[in-house]
Design a protein around this nucleic acid. Structure first.
Length: 277
DNA sequence: ACCCTCACCTGCACGC
DNA sequence: TGCGTGCAGGTGAGGG
């Protein structure tokens, strides 16, 4: 599912439901979910671990355990957590299981098998290759208008592609990149370096507000009500996106039909009239 | 160091 | 109904 707002909500709900719980037993059902560790060691290292907190960095979940360990989880396209009664049947595509000490189990499911887990000692967390190169958090002071302007100025790629590069800006994916550029009224196909300072500042504001509002509204994606973060979701996503997945529908600002352009196997949605330059 | 393409999987919607 | 095609929210490896 996930871009930053979805991962944030998963992190919050995992923290709410699982922080303070002990993992009675863990099972890695698909080896390649966590390729650095055998299923046997996965079970051994997690057995009786206390979940202290669950945080987010970029699109990664950080499950902070006692004994100086953190489980890094990336949901990629289809990773989900479901909190189920201990004896409930396993959902399809369950690749890892965590039996908690409160008669529930946490199931990690992943239809497309792109998800990733890595158990890492806290000493090495900061330099884990998954986290090391990530751009500053969008809600941090470090992610400033001038940071964005200078970062974009140093690339030759198209703006849209650059916004998806997690080492330049972290947390945006295909949906929210499109939504942020629409909000800032900037064309996705300009060169990133072409963006003037005032327009970079406008994009900066748009990125932050799109992400912030999506978190506040409970994201924009359709989710299974059994997903752990389901309680944070409002009334579904109807009408929330302005351009994403709206090819041919009227722009909500100017009524021009929204365009979709496919490149490198991915779609970019934008309003050709509002986002001319 | 950068940039591009492909690869990783399954399932669903669509057109014939 | 059945089959082939294209597409889906993300990234990493490997090449130029």
């Amino acid at each position: 599912m996930p871009e930053l707002p979805e991962v944030e909500l998963v992190a919050r709900s995992l923290a709410e439901h699982c922080a303070g719980r002990t993992i009675a037993r863990a099972e890695l059902l698909r080896d390649r979910l966590s390729p650095d560790i055998t299923p046997r060691d996965f079970a051994r290292k997690l057995r009786r671990a206390l979940i202290e907190d669950v945080m987010r960095r970029g699109k990664h979940l950080l499950v902070k355990l006692d004994r100086g360990m953190t489980l890094i989880v990336h949901l990629r396209m289809s990773g989900r957590f479901l909190l189920l009664p201990e004896k409930a049947p396993l959902p399809p595509h369950t690749h890892a299981l965590f039996y908690l000490d409160d008669a529930h189990k946490l199931a990690f499911t992943d239809q497309r098998h792109f998800g990733m887990m890595k158990l890492i000692a806290d000493d090495h967390l900061a330099d884990a290759k998954e986290l090391r190169a990530l751009a500053p958090e969008p809600f941090s002071d470090e992610f400033s208008p001038s940071y964005l302007h200078q970062t974009l100025a140093r690339t030759n790629r198209l703006l849209k592609e650059t916004l998806l590069d997690q080492t330049k800006v972290t947390g945006l994916g295909n949906i929210y990149a499109a939504e942020a550029m629409f909000r800032a009224r900037i064309n996705p196909f300009i060169r990133a370096a072409q963006l003037s300072k005032p327009r970079a500042a406008r994009l900066h504001e748009a990125i932050i507000s799109v992400l912030r509002e999506s978190i506040a509204h409970g994201s924009t994606l359709n989710i299974d009500p059994r997903d752990i973060e389901a309680s944070y979701y409002g009334g579904g996503h109807q009408g929330r996106w302005h351009v994403y997945d709206r090819e041919g529908e009227p722009c909500l600002r100017c009524s021009a039909p929204i365009r979709r352009v496919a490149r490198g196997g991915r779609s970019t949605y934008y309003c050709f009239r509002c986002q001319r330059y």
